[in-house]
Design a binder for these strands. Sequence first.
DNA 1: TCAATTAGGTACCCGAAAGTAACCATATGG
DNA 2: CCATATGGTTACTTTCGGGTACCTAATTGA
Lengths: 134, 134
Amino acid sequence: MAKKIVLPPDAFLDVCPSRNVLARVGQKWTVLAMVALHAEPMRFGDVKRRLQGVSQKMLTQTLRAMERDGLVERRLYDERPLRAEYALSPLGRALLPLVAALKSWAEESLPAVEASNRAYDRKLARKHARVHGL
Amino acid sequence: MAKKIVLPPDAFLDVCPSRNVLARVGQKWTVLAMVALHAEPMRFGDVKRRLQGVSQKMLTQTLRAMERDGLVERRLYDERPLRAEYALSPLGRALLPLVAALKSWAEESLPAVEASNRAYDRKLARKHARVHGL
DNA sequence: TCAATTAGGTACCCGAAAGTAACCATATGG
DNA sequence: CCATATGGTTACTTTCGGGTACCTAATTGA
């Protein structure tokens, strides 16, 4: 039997499963949920209140997916009423600085991005007027 | 007229447009395209070959969106045949370290994530068997 | 003359992501 | 008795990201 050669993952290759990992971080609520959990474990309702506009279903779905990927740990306490706590796992804590930086970058760059959007749209409108008819 | 109070962007708020910025970075090909352009300007075809599996339409769409957001600059040279070069803008270069780290994290964490997936699925299967019927 | 390269654009379609609404159980407060 | 809170699940629907296929238009090589 020939020795199996193991290549390091490379997301540039279309067969590479690391693309899936990348895709999951790209889910709508994942980054925000991670940042919400940055400091201490939070209860479901607390996270929900933090992520304004998230529906119950989507938050459950997001947290479940993160749990499945090993980014968060879910602890369900058998109390009445129920109590569920979510905390970043070691893997999640390793990812946290990256996504937190991403969120911060998005907030800081918002003015620049919006200005660029407007400039692009104006340029496109001028071109359209020139070509299509003024 | 009352003085307008300007709050800093906060992606936790559901009205905050920074969420859109975050969403665009989460698009399937954006991160890979940015990393591909990390070193030097590249031509359309070069980027396409680098991002294995990307369709021509999606690459155009991705690069256009990035251009509109001010992440890349597109230079079209009037040569025969046409030549188009894409380069990271200053804004894009500021974002590059973050998305590059994200891509690296995805590649490095792939084994851990896959192991976590398997463990989670096994646990879920056991629970299903216990509840539904063995 | 035919094919391939350059860099796109457009029409059409599917499946996944996301949202809405309803339901469940248990418990406390009015 | 009803509303609230806890933490979900399920069904249904809609949106849209992403894909394939086919088109342009100019130029080069076989």
